[in-house]
Simulated assay, not measured.
Amino acid sequence: MGCGRTDAGVHATDFYAHFDVENVEELKVLNAITGINAMLPYQIAAKQIIPVHDDAHARFDATARAYKYYIHFEKNPFKLNRSWLVKDKLDVEVMNDAAALLLNYTDFSCFSKSNTQTFTNNCKITKAVFEQTEDGLVFTIQADRFLRNMVRAIMGTLVQIGKKEINLTDFKAIIESKNRSNAGQSVPACGLYLVKIEYPYIR
């Protein structure tokens, strides 16, 4: 059972899955990591097996998750399918002002795909910030949970802010409307990375 699911084209540098075995020690004797990696496609690498309690659940026990979204501004073949090429000039300062506003809200219905199976669209965002890199930007966002398509929809709306298509007042109104059609388009999946998942029993 994986810790979650992502859209096609999204990456993960940190990902957990749980499975049941009768004897954890046997996995060490059998060198299970080598065997698992031999069966996995090259794009996926298992790094570690961590014994946890019998009722541990990779998806529902997570207390926090973090994503990064990468943007670059000049054509670069080495970033193909790894980052989003944006040719427009962006006002990063006002984008950070807008990102900071996310911490004041809990209902993010406006950034969620409709007709999902979630019981609530409430999330507690604890970090949302843009940082300059040598050739682009990286946006980091952390919360206790995320809705389907949430990060990509937030990014699409923040880029509208950066392009001066909408302002901070508009951004607040979009969030408070709780209407997905008012927010920006979802940005390409290629720039999105799941980078951190926290559990109360894994340090």
Rank of each mutant, 00 (worst) to 15 (best):
S114L: 13
H53F: 10
N115C: 11
S186H: 00
K127H: 14
V24H: 05
L158R: 00
S177N: 01
H11S: 05
A62T: 08
Q117V: 13
T169H: 11
S177L: 02
T63F: 04
T116Y: 04
C190H: 08
M155Q: 03
Y42I: 13
R203I: 10
T63W: 01
N81C: 11
E74W: 02
M150W: 01
L101F: 06
C3G: 15
D107Y: 08
F119H: 15
Y201Q: 13
D107V: 06
A46F: 10
I202W: 10
E176M: 05
Y193Q: 01
N179K: 07
S83W: 09
A56M: 13
E93D: 14
F108K: 12
K124F: 13
L103F: 05
N37M: 06
Y42R: 13
Y69W: 02
D97G: 04
D97T: 10
L194V: 07
D135L: 03
F73P: 11
K28I: 05
A12Q: 06
D7V: 05
C3P: 12
I174F: 08
N104S: 15
Y42C: 09
Y69D: 00
I44G: 13
T34S: 14
F19E: 14
A66T: 15
Q185M: 11
L85T: 07
V21D: 04
N122F: 14
D55L: 12
T133L: 06
T116F: 08
S114E: 15
W84G: 03
I154A: 07
I202N: 11
Y70M: 07
G4M: 03
E25D: 15
D170A: 05
K89C: 07
L102P: 01
Y199D: 12
R5V: 09
V92Q: 13
I175Y: 10
M150N: 02
Y105L: 07
A153E: 01
G2W: 14
K127P: 01
V151L: 02
Q48A: 12
V129S: 04
